[in-house]
């Protein structure tokens, strides 16, 4: 029991744990839609795109979250629309939009060489530097994203499965896609500070694909992926505390281990289903 309680003496751990659990669950939830839409690299790409927005916000002396948020939202919307309205696949659209956006940031950094803000935290994450105020922001964003997902749950499912057919059945696909772009951008921005742009892709994709290996039902996949995100955030934080390794990296490594386990369990499950079918 002491093992579990000892780290709680430290405020940085309490805040970090809350942030890791919240962002883990959030990425697990949103990750399902990302994986099923074939946009696995959107996390990686958008987190780079947001860098452009962050630099623009700094140059224009705007709030970081405001700049990064609006930029991320527009980039996500642009990717969605490019995929829907052209023959371009999601991976190519992500490649074009996000790298161009990142390049804007790099160009501005090289033009205005008087940056006082460090972008290290954004690149590599700083889970142990999370303040109580940050936890409240993450909690707020998580609550809003969960509410939007619950409110649009069936519309999001149909749109993700087949957007064109959903439109025939009267689903307001345009609105659903806009809301999705908004919650995706919000998820990336709050997770970026915790996990860093380099780890976001893993946090979005691994819980979702692990859940996919374990179930054939969408409802169960959503629940499982969210739970796996929360649990790996929790376990990763404890491990990182005791092993003294970077928290973001530990969380992702725990998720990778869960994925390996899910592969084994998934294969066993498939084998049992085939045997039951033949019996």
């Amino acid at each position: 029991m002491d093992v579990l309680l000892t780290p709680f003496q430290f405020e940085f751990f309490r805040n970090g744990l809350a942030a890791a659990v919240l962002t883990g669950g959030l990425c697990g939830l949103i990750g399902v839609y990302i994986v099923l839409r074939g946009m696995s690299y959107i996390g990686h790409g958008l987190s780079h795109a947001v860098f452009g927005g962050a630099v623009v916000a700094f140059v224009m002396q705007l709030n970081f979250y405001m700049g990064a948020g609006v930029w991320g939202f527009l980039a996500a919307l642009l990717i969605n629309q490019t995929v829907r309205r052209t023959q371009i696949n999601a991976d190519a659209a992500i490649g074009v939009v996000t790298t161009a956006s990142f390049a804007v940031g790099v160009a501005l950094v090289s033009r205005y060489r008087r940056f006082t803000q460090s972008f290290d935290a954004a690149l590599f994450g700083n889970i142990l530097g999370v303040s109580a105020a940050d936890v409240w922001v993450i909690g707020g964003v998580t609550a809003v994203v969960v509410l939007v997902v619950l409110f649009l749950y069936r519309q999001l499912l149909f749109t993700t499965f087949d957007a064109e057919v959903a439109q025939v059945y009267g689903v307001p696909v345009g609105w659903v896609e806009t809301w999705f772009a908004l919650i995706l951008a919000a998820t990336i921005i709050v997770s970026m500070q915790i996990l860093g742009v380099t780890m976001i892709a893993a946090a979005l994709v691994i819980p979702a694909i692990s859940a996919r290996l374990l179930t054939d039902s969408f409802h169960r996949m959503i629940a499982l992926s969210t739970v796996l995100g929360v649990l790996t955030g929790l376990i990763g934080m404890y491990l990182s505390f005791y092993v003294d390794v970077s928290s973001g990296a530990t969380i992702v490594l725990v998720q990778a281990s869960v994925f390996c386990l899910a592969m084994l369990v998934g294969r066993g499950r498939r084998y049992r289903l085939v045997r039951a079918e033949l019996a």
């Binding site: 099923l36 069936r154 149909f158 059945y169 039902s217 996949m221």
Partner: peptide, 13 residues
């Protein structure tokens, strides 16, 4: 990941 029933229920969205 959808079952037959989940697909049918999409028609009521």
């Amino acid at each position: 990941p959808v079952t037959a029933e989940e697909v049918v229920l999409m028609g009521l969205t």
